[in-house]
Write a protein that binds this DNA or RNA. Structure first.
Lengths: 154, 154
DNA sequence: ATCCATTAGTTAGTCTATCGAACCAAATAG
DNA sequence: CTATTTGGTTCGATAGACTAACTAATGGAT
């Protein structure tokens, strides 16, 4: 087998582990994976408008409206009309939402972080370099091919 | 910023690039991403039974039934009853399906492969080592925590 | 000052993916 | 030869996503 095959297999393992993990996490928080993602973005940005979340997640505004509906019905977030621009609705995490998020400790991230910290310095450096190399190889040309990056997007 | 943060950002870039790419590919094949995945598995295994695909993809049999329905309606695959065990239905790719798959050249994979092949030998080795290290760190404990691996699953 | 284009968000309707439960038919174990 | 297991399907429900049409607020340009 070629080296590149090992790469692809490893990448698929990474993808799969991440995805599986997302489901577990969401379970812990009592939401679906996508809802959790939305809630995390709201938490991360303090308060957010629907449009900002939509752009950040690369989905249509209508999708976010529906997600926020569900999160609101579950009491995880609240809508408030913006004073500055009354077209906007500000989304804020409720205490209950905060609570739910805290009940979803990012086990994967933590396990990874712990394992990573335990590595030798040179090995950490190697991994960072390799991951960035791979990321660049994978998303090269992304920008030119129509993917628009939005403010707040990485 | 810590080194681990760079890792996580690179990982997210990898995840995103892969996901975006899946959509493009599916578009090219005239299917949805999931349908493409199913078709690829059928192609890869020659012929497959529904159950095998379900286990391979970690979804419920009912889901595969519905996917196969769609692929069959689109003329991409065919169902045949197995002679050996008449409970089984064998899924086979049609010519049209084959064609659709070939129209979805795996651009990402190819771009990645090309970039990878162009690297120095030592760098290739480093990347393989790093990716496998990361994969192991991420999916460590996966097996114990109830994820069952099926034959044909890697 | 008023009209109009733009922007933010929602509503309605549609589609895909997914699941669990109930179910049928074939295979196999006692 | 029954009883159980296995493979797949049907059915109904739910989540996520999109488009198109709509409402409401903003902000220019005249």
């Amino acid at each position: 087998m070629e080296r590149i095959d090992y790469c692809l297999i490893a990448l698929r393992r990474i993808l799969r582990a991440t995805e599986m993990h997302g489901k577990e996490l969401a379970q812990a928080a009592g939401m679906t994976p996508v809802q959790l993602r939305v809630a995390q973005i709201v938490a991360e940005t303090g308060t957010s408008t629907g449009g900002a979340i939509a752009r950040r997640m690369h989905v249509a505004p209508a999708t976010i409206t529906s997600m926020i509906d569900k999160l609101e019905r579950a009491g995880h977030v609240e809508r408030q009309r913006s004073h500055a621009d009354r077209r906007q609705t500000i989304i804020a995490l409720t205490d209950k939402g905060q609570d739910a998020l805290s009940r979803a400790p990012d086990a994967l991230q933590q396990r990874f972080a712990a394992a990573f910290e335990a590595l030798e310095d040179w090995e950490q450096a190697m991994i960072v370099a390799a991951l960035e190399r791979v990321a660049t190889m994978l998303d090269a040309g992304e920008a030119e091919r129509g993917a628009v990056l939005y403010p707040g997007e990485f």
